[in-house]
């Protein structure tokens, strides 16, 4: 029972990480219909920026708690500038090109960012300093720490915040309008370039938060960390229904749980025939099953279609 509970906790934490990243994918897709494959790299740059500013500030004698918060803000600002630039340079010129072109560009941007980060921060693994006491709690035999609880709450809060922005604000109305029909929105006086830029900046700020949380949880930052994370988060977004904010959260948590329960019990269930090396197969098997029976994902509908 203890072990089972711990696997649930593991899955929820891992799932929240996926959800945090998946929210960024899904928002951009919901508005633009574009899969921003560079999103995982923005997550990584967010972590790296936070790490660098944190190290610098600690060197100047800034108190730890303040340094953590400031570096997080700096990482968010940095990523917003990055997100804006990516959209302006790489995606905007291709907005009316066939769908394949921006997709390939996105992969290109991802490779460029990865190599850029490799040149700036080097190939080695950076350890992410642990500055605030990370207390562990034992709930019914399962162990969870403060950072993991924060990740879970943060993922929920960001999802809720985004829902409010999309459904309750003027900006959100403009976003939904752009998602539905760019030309019509433009004719109605919506500045679509501005709306799309803001969407990218919001998504990138969330990526920065995700990056910092992932690095704080695993205690490391590396120029390659965004790749697999991005891929898994993308899977989570598709599982939940890409373009749907609640779907990203649900998909993330589900993927996390499937992975941890799959890895933990697949050996016992199959009597040792399949081991935890089939962990990823398990996750993708569920994904394929969902897509076969519900091609638009579990909660599939784009942000606009629910307005």
């Amino acid at each position: 029972m203890e072990i089972f509970l711990q696997q649930i906790v593991n899955g929820l934490v891992q799932g929240s990480v996926y959800a945090l990243v998946a929210l960024g994918y899904t928002m951009v897709y919901g508005i633009l219909g574009l899969i921003n494959f560079a999103h995982g790299e923005v997550v990584m740059i967010g972590a790296m920026l936070a790490l660098s500013s944190l190290t610098a500030m600690l060197g100047w004698g800034v108190p730890p708690l303040l340094a953590v918060l400031l570096s997080m803000v700096l990482a968010m600002l940095g990523c917003m500038v990055l997100g804006y630039s990516i959209e302006r340079i790489a995606y905007r010129p291709l907005r009316h090109a066939p769908r394949l072109a921006p997709l390939i560009t996105a992969i290109g941007v991802s490779i460029v960012l990865q190599n850029l980060a490799m040149m700036i921060w080097g190939r080695e693994y950076h350890s992410f300093p642990q500055l605030i006491a990370n207390n562990t709690h034992t709930v019914g035999g399962a162990i969870i720490n403060d950072i993991q609880i924060i990740i879970f709450i943060l993922a929920l809060a960001i999802m809720a915040g985004l829902m409010v922005v999309v459904h309750r604000t003027r900006l959100g109305r403009a976003m939904r309008a752009v998602a539905e029909d760019q030309h019509a929105a433009q004719l109605m006086g919506v500045d679509i370039n501005r709306v799309i830029s803001i969407t990218f900046m919001l998504g990138s700020a969330m990526a920065a938060i995700a990056g910092v949380m992932v690095s704080a949880n695993y205690g490391l930052a590396h120029y390659y960390m965004g790749f697999l994370l991005g891929l898994k988060a993308f899977t989570a977004a598709v599982l939940g229904g890409i373009g749907n904010l609640r779907g990203a959260m649900l998909g993330g948590l589900l993927l996390g749980l499937i992975e941890s329960l799959g890895a933990g019990y697949i050996g016992d269930i199959t009597g040792g025939f399949l081991g935890s090396n089939y962990q990823d197969v398990f996750a993708f098997f569920v994904l394929i099953t969902v897509l076969v029976f519900r091609p638009s994902g579990l909660l599939g509908e784009r942000i606009a279609e629910r307005a």
């Binding site: 695993y218 960390m225 941890s260 329960l261 890895a263 019990y265 050996g267 081991g275 935890s276 962990q279």
Partner: peptide
């Protein structure tokens, strides 16, 4: 116990928890 991961993974909590048992 003999569990598995891959050379790109970052999270091992699931297999480690299985091992803990």
């Amino acid at each position: 116990a003999h569990e598995y991961t891959n050379d790109k993974a970052m999270d091992f909590t699931a297999v480690l928890t299985a091992i803990k048992g």
